[in-house]
Amino acid sequence: MKPNHLQHRDWRERLDQRIAPRPAPLDAGMRRGRGALTNETGRFERVTRETFDDSWDIPEEVAPLRTEVTHERPRTIITRNASPDLGFDRSVNPYRGCEHGCFYCFARPSHAYQGLSAGLDFETRLFAKPDAPALLERELAARGYSPRTIAIGTNTDPYQPIEKRMKITRGILEVLARTRHPVGIVTKSGLVTRDLDILGPMAEQGLVKVAISLTTLDPRLSRKMEPRAAAPGVRLETIRRLRAEGIPVSVLVAPVVPAINDHEIERLLDAAYEAGAREAGYVMLRLPHEVKALARDWLAEHFPQRAQHVMSLVQDMQGGKDYDSRWGVRQSGTGPIAWAIGRRFEIAANRLGFNAERVRLRTDLFCKPARSAPGQLALF
């Protein structure tokens, strides 16, 4: 049993979470085209800052927040994980933060490690890793490296808008293509088709597969949920183009938000299969750390009559909490509602013929890059 002072602290924390007022949304003009409504101080910061109107300024039109990009110089680029409920053990993320602005993004809390907010900071203050291709080549050349599929897009989208000019993801793919290393890509952007000249030949060698995230077929709902991501029609056309080039494509219905988009599961799978996807998966809404409050703000703004009901359904699937982080539970939930959604997805996917065969990428073609520095002759 916990000491009395710890019990008291836990009780106070739970009480604070229930009665603490939420900060008012920032000016609508300032956050135009963004997903989050607030920009609360990061959870690791000792000082809390809040924007408020002191009535001294003359009312005027507020300029929308602009995207700022900072170059990051990490020492390594391959991230390892041992999570038993993930289908990969290594990943590469070219960017921190994501301009798509999806209110539900489970990666938002990672911005707190930069001393920034999981709210608007996450989608307006981005970090790019221009050295990623060179770092990747160096790590692939390391002694003892054994190839397994590298996942790209597991944290933030590798084809978010700044990729158009920075081309870091393309540079990473060039390294992987040159070394014949398998890669799996997750994106909700049509920009992935820009790299068909790389992905096509890799697909012929069994080295690549792409998953397109599809949340809704309603463009208006998509704009609310993912304000700067590609429209649903663009994502379906992306599936068609990838399929036409012989690239294995899967669809990821994610996230499933009860009472918001769960009624579309069957139609989403129908549309994706018709477009050419042959594997399918889904993920329930995940609300770790700050995403809990961001989701409540979003629901109150866009679906005020439904907000309380949606959160009640979420909690029903998470053991009475907003989020259950246990492996094997965090992505699918538990309880009768989660079970029903899972069975609906399974029945619809089986009816269409999804997942009849799983594409397994090859690792036997891997060609380790030389360890010598550019311009330096290898000794052996």
Results as ranks from 00 to 15, higher is better:
L214D: 09
D262F: 00
R286E: 14
A254M: 00
M225A: 14
R178K: 13
V183A: 04
H289F: 08
L199S: 07
V251T: 05
H289D: 15
L285Q: 01
R165G: 02
I172F: 08
R178I: 03
P161E: 07
A231P: 00
I162C: 12
R286Q: 15
L252H: 12
K167R: 15
A277L: 03
A203R: 08
R194Y: 01
I247P: 09
R220A: 14
K164T: 14
G206N: 13
L191K: 04
G206S: 00
E274I: 07
L191H: 03
G276M: 11
S250A: 13
G184C: 09
V253T: 12
L287R: 08
E163F: 04
G206F: 11
P161Y: 10
G190L: 00
P232M: 08
G184S: 15
P232W: 13
A275L: 11
E163K: 07
T238A: 02
P182T: 06
R180I: 00
P288H: 09
E264P: 12
R165K: 13
P227S: 05
P258T: 05
M202E: 09
K209T: 11
L269W: 04
V210R: 00
G246V: 06
G200I: 03
E226C: 01
I185H: 01
N261D: 00
G246E: 05
D195Y: 04
S189M: 04
R278L: 15
G246C: 06
S222Y: 02
R240M: 01
V175H: 08
P227L: 02
L199D: 06
P232Q: 06
I247Y: 00
L173E: 04
V186A: 10
M284Y: 05
D218H: 07
I265Q: 03
T238S: 04
V175S: 00
I212K: 09
S250L: 12
V186R: 02
I198L: 15
V234Q: 12
R267D: 15
I265L: 13
V192S: 09
A203W: 12
E204H: 12
R170G: 14
I172A: 10
V208M: 12
A275W: 01
A244P: 02
M284N: 14
A231M: 11
A275H: 03
E163S: 03
A231N: 08
K167H: 15
M225N: 03
V249D: 06
E163L: 12
D270T: 09
E204S: 11
V256E: 09
A177I: 01
T187N: 01
I260V: 15
A272W: 08
V192L: 07
V256Q: 07
V251A: 05
V186E: 02
R170N: 05
P255L: 05
V234S: 11
T193E: 10
D195A: 01
E174G: 12
P248F: 09
T193M: 09
S213I: 05
R170H: 12
R286T: 05
V283F: 03
A259H: 12
R278I: 06
